[in-house]
Nucleic acid binder design. Structure first.
Lengths: 139, 139
DNA sequence: TATTAATCCTATCAATTTAGTAGGGATTAC
DNA sequence: GTAATCCCTACTAAATTGATAGGATTAATA
């Protein structure tokens, strides 16, 4: 299951990408328009800022803005920040590899084999999709 | 994250597929050889049996066996039984569709769009992989 | 400079899910 | 009849999720 955190985060990014008017977008506006609990959303956008995807401006007329062009914000990056590793098991994770305690030999493990394939196919999609793809309304 | 339940279930199925000797395989043997807590494994195999993937024989010399040829047991089926829907959000689930409470229009939802693609690519892998593929040792 | 509107930060919490454990019942081979 | 095996229900500790609460900090502007 995709967490609400990731879901909300993606929606917020899309919202910001769509309303590029050179002015930062306020959390309150996103929360209202996308039906997201504001306080929860605050913490999510904070995470995205700390990860370098969003920038922020404090104080009156402050808000959040994209640090890069939508086409440069890959879904792999967003998903890793919000949802964690792409791989479904640590033993096939590219960035957060960890050996399984059970499982003497990884190369003979059937789960490993399957999860490598799932990871690769998911990666392919996420690498080839950017925020720009999500934000274009035209279907 | 893949649950331990699914992981253990896959390992158990592989174990059974590999040791086809016309005799049912005991939970204790699987648990021991695959480093799985026996009682936990019991409940997992029970689930697989109720789902029609495994058959069982009670009493002395009893155990579990595959109801179909390994090549006929698709990963889509196993994953749905153990892990639940393939889709990461209910609104893109083929078998367990559910509308999101937020999200007025699904077709304009960026998350929906992305998750359809992820689902399709995962499905492709799981549909094309059978227990036979997992069980063959030769890499 | 005082006010207001924002982000920023920490702490807390209820509900759910996960990963088991415990204990015994039912069935079958020998 | 005894031992081995699956079957079933109930319970539980720990982790995760999806928030909420309360305020600190910062900046625009009247």
């Amino acid at each position: 299951m995709l967490s609400k955190k990731t879901k909300y985060g993606l929606k917020a990014l899309t919202y910001i990408a769509r309303s590029e008017e050179d002015a930062p977008v306020q959390v309150s506006a996103i929360a209202k328009n996308e039906n997201i609990p504001q306080k929860f959303l605050e913490s999510i956008l904070l995470t995205l800022r700390k990860a370098g995807i969003l920038g922020s401006k404090k104080g009156k007329h402050g808000g959040y803005y994209l640090r890069y062009e939508p086409s440069e914000i890959k879904m792999t990056d967003v998903m890793r920040v919000l949802e964690g590793p792409i791989a479904m098991v640590p033993c096939v994770s590219l960035n957060y590899y960890e050996k399984c305690d059970d499982c003497p030999d990884e190369h003979k493990c059937s789960v490993h084999k399957l999860m490598v394939e799932v990871r690769d196919s998911t990666l392919k999609v996420l690498r080839n999709t950017s925020l720009a793809d999500l934000s274009n309304i035209d279907l």
